[in-house]
Amino acid sequence: MPIIKVNNRDVHIQELNTAAPETILLVHGMCSNLSIYYFRIAPILARHFHVVMYDLKSHGMSEKISSGYDLNSLTDDLVHLMEYLHIASAYLAGYSFGGLICLKMATRFPQRIKKLVLIEAPNPNDDKIRLVMDAYSRESLEHYLNGPNQRKFGNRQMDRKHRLYEHLFHETTIKRDFMQESDFFIDTEIAQIKQETLLLYGSYSPCLEAGENLKEKISSAALFALNGDHDIPLQEPERIGNMMEMFFKNQMAQTYS
């Protein structure tokens, strides 16, 4: 497993098809890890592109870090990773909170981003996210994971998830940092994004409204509502992988017009 040192911190990355001339960077969401792409979506993209996945700080197999979860710090992290890997510019895609990191990248470092895919990027002003973080407990985790639509989790898996959430919500600045981003969608900088942007949302997702909001703000954005909810990377991985591949290869218009 490749663990690299970026800014003296351990970062877990996975790369596919390193010989390809153009790179796609994939950013996962909060409390997730790179496996959201690794099994189904990344292999589709790797047919024609160099694919880089990485675990955000404190997530997956990257080092636990107590601070720096605001979008400026997280985009700084991504730029440092690109510098380490000698990637001058790339196609960029992010899921959920990772989508917000990608959006911020396009506003801060537009020259580094060729095109943008945002999957289920939420509006950070949404109180539900804050409420979930505030109300987190082991009991709430067990209640959620043992819900009717979930697979069954064993004690060891539950312990690992609980340790991650405990660390993020009680030992890091993630809650405070996230709250500071609540006005991100009303910032004028989003309307300045010029890159072609593909917005992929679940048709039953509470985040779909955020996608519609972004479509209005970003001049060259196209929005597609896929069959599913916030978990569409798990529900429709093949469709998402194929749509991303077509979008990055400039074949989207021919296929979806």
């Binding site: 497993m1 996975q14 890890n33 790179l34 496996s35 959201i36 690794y38 099994f39 675990d55 997956g60 197999m61 697979r151 069954k152 989790f153 064993g154 004690n155 060891r156 898996q157 690992r160 998830k161």
Partner: peptide
């Protein structure tokens, strides 16, 4: 992997690697 070994997705990534 899930039911018996209780491995989570990032552990299955490490195993695959």
């Amino acid at each position: 992997f899930n039911k018996d070994l209780e491995m989570d997705s990032i552990e299955i990534v490490a195993f695959s690697e």
